[in-house]
Amino acid sequence: MLSILGALGGLILAPFAGGLLSGVDRRLTARLQSRAGPPLLQPFYDVLKLFGKEPKVTNAWLVFSAYVYLIASAFSLFIFFMGGDLLLLFFVLTIGAVFQVVGAICVPSPYSQVGAQRELLLMLAYEPILILVFVGFAMCTGSFMISDVFRLDSPLLLKMPLLFLALGYALTIKLRKSPFDISAGHHGHQELVRGVQTEYSGPYLALIEIGHWLDLVLILGLCALFWHTSGIGMCILVAASLFTEILIDNITARLTWQWMVQKQSLLAGMGFALVNLLWLYVA
């Protein structure tokens, strides 16, 4: 019961944390581009404003998809806070990702269609890596439960450094950071407007945005699991991961999807994961 309350509390706090992190992201990005950047609370202003806007959609499925995306993201984060099953978490996360794409495809708009196709390719790139990383967890702890990670004595980072790198790849893709921002880039709007998010607007875009914050929290939480033994260690890992993501976002150019799937995901990401898994298997 206590754990449920804790998880619910975490779930309520998560959007605030996610929004703040996203504000830090925008601020840091601005600094890296020698700009002043928006206020730290800018993401909250954006989302609140979006909630106050008039609804304008092409069809009702879009609304349904936006809600399902947010619910699925919240749900997977809840599973995470409950210390639940990593695979279940992954599959629930897939519901959200799939519905975001379904919502984009169900509108006959060329921009959201292209974005959706690219988003599917992003999913193709990160999903196998995530599964392999979770298998790595299972090999170290003996189960897919997140709670079992905390029974270990030594940080997972020592046993699966390459899997951490692979996870880094998967996270960059999942968060659509450059060089993997092909489906809905802030920076690519001349080419495909907002890609998969083009047709979501007003309050529904706000739902998607909050879902994205929750994903960010979940993903950083997964990174933190690699150094579960110390609170400071977790903070360091989270901060380092976030900073690296932002840095990479700012210093790389967009890739084509072929490059992303073949070279980056299959060769580098899956390669790292497989080598580490074999190492765990042998050790």
């Binding site: 959609v57 092409t58 069809n59 009702a60 499925w61 897939t94 799939v98 794409v101 379904v102 919502g103 984009a104 495809i105 169900c106 509108v107 006959p108 959706a116 196709q117 599917l120 390719l121 999913m123 193709l124 790139a125 999903e127 196998p128 599964i131």
Partner: peptide, 21 residues
């Protein structure tokens, strides 16, 4: 599994696509 998601999701999206509310 990742390929599976790819071909199912886009088909589902196509099926319910419409320009009317």
């Amino acid at each position: 599994s990742a390929f599976t998601v790819l071909f199912w999701a886009r088909w589902a999206g196509i099926l319910i696509s419409s320009a009317n509310l």
